[in-house]
Simulated scan of single mutants.
Amino acid sequence: MKITAQEEYGLRILLRIGRHHQREGISIPAISEAEGLSAAYVAKLTRILRISGYINSTPGYKGGYVLAQPASQININQVMKVLGGALYSKKFCEDYTGALKLCTNSIDCSIRSLWQMIQLTVDQLLDKVSLQDLISPEEESSLLLESILQQQTL
């Protein structure tokens, strides 16, 4: 399982917008330069984030993007699903049937149980993380995320 480029860059763009404190927001060219991404790719990802209700665009010459809601209310699990979907979904078995119409293990599949367990664990962990938790400097965010992980394993 891998984090896709769209998930990585989309989350980085959302963080960049969340860290930007000017009222008019941050522009696509500024995000593009700061993140080392093409303006077209930034535009694509900001469109996804805007349609999903995470950011708003501010009009005008000095316009840009701002968070649509407080960073503390933006759930990272939901953002990741908007950007790339769940690691595992029920449709997964339909998509990976091999050369057959139905998966040969569709009735008794211990692998499906593994994927479901991994998805549940990831969901439970990421549901506890907000954008605000990631806006802090790395050292501070790391400590916060470690404490969330420790609470999860108790």
Results as ranks from 00 to 15, higher is better:
M1A: 15
K2N: 13
A5T: 12
Q6D: 10
Q6E: 12
E7A: 15
E8Y: 11
E8F: 05
Y9Q: 07
Y9I: 02
L11G: 06
I13K: 02
L14Y: 05
L15T: 09
L15A: 01
R19E: 11
Q22D: 10
R23C: 05
E24K: 12
I26E: 04
I28G: 00
P29M: 06
A30Q: 04
A30N: 04
A30S: 10
S32T: 10
E33K: 12
A34R: 15
A34V: 04
A34S: 14
G36L: 05
A39D: 13
A40M: 11
Y41Q: 14
V42S: 11
L45S: 07
T46E: 08
I48T: 15
I48L: 14
I48S: 15
I48Q: 13
I48N: 15
L49F: 04
L49D: 13
R50V: 06
S52W: 01
G53Y: 04
G53P: 07
Y54E: 14
I55P: 08
P59S: 13
G60I: 02
G60H: 01
Y61F: 13
G64L: 09
G64K: 09
Y65F: 12
V66P: 00
V66T: 13
L67Y: 05
Q69D: 10
A71L: 03
A71D: 08
S72A: 09
I74H: 02
N75F: 00
N75E: 00
N75H: 00
N77P: 03
N77K: 06
Q78T: 14
Q78R: 15
V79R: 11
V79K: 11
V79C: 09
M80G: 00
K81D: 05
V82W: 03
L83S: 11
L83T: 12
L83F: 03
L83W: 08
G84P: 09
G85Y: 07
L87N: 14
L87S: 05
K90P: 01
F92T: 13
C93A: 05
C93Y: 08
C93G: 00
E94W: 02
T97P: 00
L100P: 01
L102K: 15
C103F: 01
C103A: 13
N105L: 15
N105M: 14
S106I: 10
I107W: 02
I107F: 12
I107K: 06
D108Y: 07
C109N: 08
C109W: 08
S110H: 15
I111Y: 09
I111L: 14
I111M: 05
R112Y: 02
W115C: 05
W115V: 04
Q116W: 01
M117T: 07
Q119C: 06
T121C: 06
V122Y: 06
D127V: 04
D127G: 11
D127P: 07
K128N: 12
D133C: 13
I135Q: 10
P137S: 02
E138N: 06
E139G: 07
S141P: 03
L143F: 08
L144C: 07
L144H: 03
L144I: 09
E146V: 09
I148M: 04
I148C: 03
L149I: 06
Q150D: 15
Q150S: 12
Q152I: 00
